[in-house]
Design a protein around this nucleic acid. Structure first.
Lengths: 142, 142
DNA sequence: TGTGAAACGCAATTTAGTTGCATTTAAAAA
DNA sequence: TTTTTAAATGCAACTAAATTGCGTTTCACA
């Protein structure tokens, strides 16, 4: 199945209407090996794509479980495509993220599950985010 | 020992000069039970405290190991006072953070250590951040 | 193919944080 | 105690990211 068909199917499956901007944004995120900020996504879209529309698109994608925010310690929000099982009701992105101190990219380590912790009394966790910092595969010295 | 003396000692120990703004900022962070953003700190400082000075103060505190950034999924950076052992060379804040979905406060769970994970080949982690989401002690239904 | 709700896109605005530079001040030396 | 000087401050101006309101366009179902 061509990539464009998969994009369209994702939109339909999550109850979102097909538009040019949405297909383009989802494709950019699906093809990126690391999480992207709003500005970075904008750069990869066709010129003159409206920035407000982009941000609204990101919001609706997030609400419907197509993408997830990636935790970081900066003042820029980054997004990554969700695993295919996520929906508006429940996210299942229980994987660790890895931020490279060299290239600054944040990768989803889909194969590494976030370990649970024991909490103090009366704290109840629903979501977990785990971010590692270090040197990624590409930036390792030879 | 009075709190003001402890504040002064912290500054000295980390090689920072004593100034009015620094003492005030450090006191606000040391007394807060949860992480604060730049704007929130500003609100708790004496009126007319210069915002630029505040941000520069936060930067030098972070550089010298007095405070640490707290990970989040928003576009606002928050800070919390470090444990006493941290220095410019090494941070030892290996504790879990907890963000309440009700009051939105982010607490340092100093007694809960971040568990390690096994990484794919050629990824090497130096830092770890762990954020839980859920309902905090104060916001639990009675 | 017509219709209504959803999405778009423009203008204007808000919020967070930054840069450059002249002035002031803390703290070590004289 | 005074001098010295590097560090910290504070003002003006600015940048970047994201948001709000509103009229126009478009998708998708009938």
């Amino acid at each position: 199945m061509p990539a464009t068909d998969r994009i369209s199917q994702s939109l339909t499956r999550h109850g979102l209407r097909q538009t040019t901007v949405r297909r383009a944004v989802l494709q950019v995120l699906a093809e990126s090996p690391y999480a992207l900020s709003g500005g970075e996504i904008e750069q990869q879209l066709p010129p003159n794509t409206d920035r407000i529309t982009l941000y609204r698109t990101l919001k609706s994608f997030e609400d419907s479980g197509l993408i997830h925010r990636v935790i970081d310690t900066t003042d820029v929000v980054r997004y990554a495509a969700c695993s295919i099982e996520c929906s508006a009701d429940a996210h299942f992105d229980n994987h660790v993220h890895f931020k490279c101190t060299n290239c600054l990219h944040i990768y989803c380590l889909n194969q590494v599950t976030i370990p649970a912790v024991t909490l103090p009394a009366k704290f109840e966790a629903v979501t977990r985010d785990y971010l590692l910092g270090g040197v990624c595969r590409e930036c390792q010295p030879a």
